[in-house]
Structure formats: structure tokens, C-alpha cells
Design a protein around this nucleic acid. Structure first.
Length: 305
DNA sequence: AAGACGAAAGTGGTTGA
DNA sequence: TCAACAACTTTCGTCTT
């Protein structure tokens, strides 16, 4: 899942990762890429007593899906209060008041946003790593003041979309839009905005990544799926993929692959699960036939029936 | 009757002056 | 900031099975 990182400044892949500082530095130009990388390694492990205690930590691992990254201590769990005398009680209330005061607007916003984030990502059945990344992106967006003038929900949706793309488990804008209740255009807009402002580099999404979901939604066979992958490969070599919407290309090759394997689906069906129109499928499909000489193969498949 | 096909006009985003 | 432009959509009429 880990993608090879390249330096956005000089393009070199000569990066030195420093886990303990949580950053990656480009050896070629010295640029610091990330100063808030997520460390998935176990860091609370102990080897023996001679280990430097500096590496030892207690408590749960940090996580960005808690608004304070899991670090806060709450004053105010009910029940504790009954052990206290009168003096203790007033101290307790004073502390609680302060905690309330300290929690700034930003923190309250984060708390709300992360609840929304959890809701949407569980609706879309997104993996934990994607949630983490999205939460991190959102946190950074808040710190940079990018939420101003935008609804919290739309920024959450944008962060999730970006995170999905980064982890190569793409969801379409339509799906995100449906799950979050945000207008599709708005999701796209904030997505572009925050990725640009935060300098998050997104690789152009690969049509192949969409196939598994489309295949299962259409109940097609695994053979058809690998056939579609094959077609996509050729399409890329013929340079049919650049500039086109990846979902359209994925849908078209899946449509062709289904025809070849006698698992015909209508253009309408394929179009629906892919979130494109029949027309787009037709256009891509036409190009595929013309450029890749697949026509004979389809005929053969039908004749062999 | 349903699906496939294609033309024409419209939409939102990108690019280059 | 504006206009040209490509990709994609919507709509609708025609052809095929």
C-alpha cells in the first residue's frame, strides 16, 4: 500500500525518512516533505531493561481520528466526584470550567468534523488507514484556516476523497456526494482547493482501481475482470487513457470484456454502477474497438456460443 | 419493446493570453 | 479576467434485435 515517494521539488526519489522526527527529507534538494507522517509502527515496545527509557511511552497510540489525537485528559468523568470533600469538589468544578474554556472553537469544530468523517466513511466502508489520512488532512486544513467560508461537511468530504485517491481505493465523486449529502460539484471544488493549498500530490487515478467494485456490483466473473485489466493495459499503451475520465474508461473496458466472455450487460447497467452515461461508454467503447482490433475477438466470442 | 447508436446542444473545468 | 477548448452529460430521434 505504501507508494514510492518522490520529491515534489526536484523529482528525485532519493528520500531519507526519519521515523523518530516524523519527516522525510530529500537528499537532493533538502526539502522537508512531510513533518506529520503517520507512523504505523509499534512504538511502545520494550526490549530489555537496558533500552533507553526515552523510547518508552505509555498510553494508547496516537490517532488523528480523535480530535485531540487521543492525548487529552478529561476532567469530569461522573462518579469520581463522590470521593471528594467540599474542597475537592470546588477544585473539580474549577478545573472543569477551565477545560471547557480551553477547548477552543477549533477543537470543537474538529470534534464535530471527525464524527461526520466517521459517519461518512463507515457508510462507504472505507478502511481504517483511509480514515486516518482523511482526518489528518482535515486537521491540517483547519490549522491552515481553509475551512473558513466552506461548510465543515464539504471539507470532510473533500478530505475523504483525497484520502481515497491517495490510498488507491477510489470512490467516485458521486458516491462521496451521496454519502455526505454534499453537492457533487462542491465536493470536487473543496477537494481541489484543499489539495492545492496543502500541496498534497495525488497521482492520477488509475482506471484499474475501479474495476473490482464495478465487477462485483455487476456480478461479473473474475475472468471478465482480468480481461478488462488486459484491455485497459492495451488502451493505455495506445494512449487512449490520458485526459479521459478514468471511470468512463474502466466502464467501457468492462463492457467490452463482458461481451467477450458472453456475460453481456447492457450499457445502461454498466453506466449506472460506474456513474457515467451510456454515451460516454459508447464513445470509449468505439475507440477501444477501433484502436485495439478487438472486433474480431468479440465476434469469435459470440460465434463460439 | 428494449437496447444500441449517434447527433446536437448544454455544462463545468482547464488553459493560455 | 475572459475566451477558447476538451470531456462529459442530457435529450431525442432512428435503427436493430
Amino acid at each position: 500500500m505504501r507508494q514510492t515517494m518522490k520529491c515534489p521539488e526536484c523529482g528525485g526519489s532519493n528520500l531519507r525518512v526519519q521515523k523518530e522526527k516524523g519527516e522525510a527529507v530529500c537528499r537532493d534538494c533538502g526539502l522537508v516533505i512531510e513533518d506529520k507522517m503517520i507512523d504505523f509502527g509499534q512504538e511502545w515496545r520494550e526490549f530489555d531493561e537496558s533500552d533507553e527509557s526515552s523510547k518508552r511511552r505509555t498510553g494508547a497510540p496516537m490517532t488523528y481520528t480523535k480530535y485531540d489525537q487521543g492525548l487529552a485528559t478529561d476532567v469530569g468523568a461522573k462518579g469520581d466526584i463522590y470521593h471528594l470533600g467540599a474542597k475537592g469538589k470546588s477544585k473539580f468544578f474549577r478545573l472543569r470550567k477551565w477545560q471547557h474554556r480551553i477547548s477552543t472553537a477549533i477543537e470543537r469544530n474538529l470534534k464535530l468534523a471527525l464524527a461526520e468523517l466517521k459517519r461518512v466513511s463507515s457508510y462507504l466502508k472505507l478502511p481504517e488507514a483511509v480514515k486516518e489520512e482523511a482526518a489528518r488532512i482535515y486537521t491540517m486544513a483547519v490549522q491552515k484556516g481553509l475551512v473558513r467560508g466552506r461548510s465543515m461537511e464539504s471539507v470532510v468530504a473533500g478530505a475523504l476523497y483525497a484520502s481515497c485517491r491517495r490510498h488507491e481505493v477510489p470512490r467516485t465523486l458521486d458516491e462521496l456526494s451521496e454519502a455526505s449529502g454534499i453537492d457533487k460539484k462542491e465536493v470536487g471544488r473543496t477537494y481541489r482547493f484543499i489539495t492545492r493549498e496543502l500541496g498534497i500530490r495525488i497521482l492520477p487515478s488509475n482506471p484499474v482501481d475501479y474495476l473490482p467494485r464495478f465487477v462485483s456490483a455487476l456480478k461479473l466473473s473474475a475472468e471478465t475482470q482480468s480481461k478488462a485489466v488486459e484491455i485497459l493495459q492495451k488502451a493505455r499503451d495506445a494512449e487512449l487513457t490520458s485526459g479521459r475520465g478514468p471511470t468512463g474508461i474502466a466502464a467501457a473496458s468492462l463492457y467490452v470484456a463482458a461481451l467477450m466472455n458472453n456475460e453481456k450487460r447492457t450499457q445502461r447497467e454498466v453506466a449506472d454502477v460506474a456513474g457515467v452515461t451510456e454515451v460516454t461508454i459508447r464513445n470509449r467503447y468505439k475507440e477501444l474497438l477501433k484502436e485495439l482490433d478487438l472486433k474480431d475477438k468479440i465476434k469469435k466470442g459470440i460465434d463460439a456460443d
